[in-house]
Simulated scan of single mutants.
Amino acid sequence: MSVAEAEAAPSAQTRASGSSFYAAMRILPRAQRDGMFEIYSFCRLVDDIADDGGPQAPRFTQLEQWRQDINALCAGKLPSPQFAGLFAAIKKFNLQKDDFFAVIDGMEMDVREDIQAPDWQKLDLYCDRVASAVGRLSVRVFGTPEKEGAALAYHLGRALQLTNILRDIDEDAGINRLYLPREALVAAGITSTNPQDVIASPHLAAACAPVITRAKEHFAEAAAIMKRCPRASVKSPRLMYEAYQIILGTLLARGFTPPRQKIKLPKHQLLFVVLRHGLF
C-alpha cells in the first residue's frame, strides 16, 4: 500500500464506529481508546477476509500476509505506514504476537470450510481464537492485572461469542454456517447438520439450550473475576458484560420459534449502561 492509499484508507476509529463494542471503547482514556480502536480495526480487517467469500487461495494469502506484518510489527519493524497506529499500540501495551496469530487462525478456520455443527472441542477452540484471543489483547490495554486478565479474557470472550452464535443463527445459516455444537443437535433429536434444516427444526430451542447454559456459566465466572479487579481496569469489560446480558435476556424472551426477529440492543438501554460506567 502506498502512502497515499494509506492516508485514504478508513481510520481505525472509523472502522470501529459501527461496532457494538464502540461504546465500550469510547469510555476509555485517550491512549487506551486509541489502542482498542487499533485492535478492533485489525479484527475487522481479518474478519472481512474470512467473510468475503470467493476462492480460498487469495484469502489464505491475505491472512498469511497479515501474519508476516504482525510478525514484523512485534519485532519492532514498521512494514508500511498504514500500520503506524497498530505499531504504537503493540509497543505501548506490550501486545503479544501469539494473540494476534490466534485471531488470524480463527479466521482461517472460516476460510478453510463453512463450519457446520462442530463438536464442543472445536467450537471452544474457535471461540478462543476469535473472541478470547481478542480479550487477551484487550485486557493488556485496559491494564487488568495479568492473572485476572487472562481468566477474564477466557470467560468473557466465550460468553460474548456464544451469545453471538445464538443471536446470529439465521444470519450464519444464510452464509451456510452453523456454529451450534453437534452433540447438542443430536441430544435435541436433530440429525441434519445442514444450517437451513436446523434453523427450521421444531427442536431448535432444545439444541440451543446447552449453549445458553454454557454462556451463562462463562458470564458468571467473568462477573466473579471482575469483582476482584480494580474498577478502572474493568470499566469497558463491565459495559460489554451488561450489554450482552441484555442481549441474551432479550434473546431468551423472544425464543427460537420462527419467525425470529433479529435481536438488537435498544439504544436507550445501551446509553444507560454507558452513563453508569462512563460517568460513575
Rank of each mutant, 00 (worst) to 15 (best):
M1A: 11
L73H: 05
A224P: 07
I247G: 04
Y40N: 08
R238C: 12
A24I: 01
S2Q: 14
F93S: 01
R182Y: 07
L73Y: 04
V3A: 15
P181S: 04
H155Y: 06
P10C: 07
E38D: 09
S2A: 14
P237C: 08
H203Y: 06
R254L: 09
Y241C: 06
V141Y: 01
R276G: 08
I49P: 01
A150D: 13
M226H: 07
Q245E: 14
Y179D: 00
P259S: 06
A57G: 14
Y22V: 04
P145L: 03
Q116M: 11
S19D: 07
V139F: 05
A23R: 00
M1Y: 07
L137A: 10
Q261F: 02
D119E: 10
R276N: 07
A8E: 11
I169W: 00
D124L: 08
R67D: 12
A207L: 01
I212T: 08
K122Q: 14
V139D: 05
L166K: 00
D172V: 02
R67V: 06
V211T: 05
L152A: 06
Y126K: 11
S2K: 15
S138A: 15
L45W: 03
A223T: 12
C208D: 00
A151L: 12
R112N: 15
Q121M: 14
P230F: 13
A220I: 05
A223R: 14
P195A: 05
D168L: 06
N164Y: 05
E146A: 15
M240S: 13
A253V: 09
P259D: 04
I27M: 03
R33P: 07
A88F: 05
R214A: 04
Q56S: 15
G249V: 02
C208I: 00
R231M: 11
V130P: 11
I27C: 03
C208V: 01
S80A: 15
L73S: 10
P181W: 02
G85V: 09
A209S: 04
V46Q: 05
D47S: 09
G35M: 08
R177H: 06
R231V: 09
I247V: 10
C127Y: 01
A184M: 04
D51L: 14
T213A: 03
A151N: 07
Y244H: 07
K91H: 13
R140Q: 12
K122S: 15
R59S: 09
G53Q: 09
A224F: 10
D110E: 12
E183W: 02
K122N: 14
C208M: 02
I27V: 08
M25I: 06
I70F: 01
S132G: 10
D197S: 12
A117W: 01
P118D: 06
G255V: 09
Q13E: 15
P55A: 14
N71K: 14
Y241Q: 10
A6V: 11
P266Y: 01
E108R: 13
Y126P: 02
M107R: 05
H203V: 04
D128R: 11
F42N: 03
L204F: 04
G135V: 05
Y244F: 06
T61L: 14
P58H: 04
T163A: 03
A72I: 08
C208N: 01
S80M: 12
V234G: 14
I169G: 01
L28M: 12
A75G: 08
C208S: 03
M240C: 14
V234K: 13
W120D: 10
F21C: 02
R260L: 08
T61V: 13
A220N: 07
V211D: 00
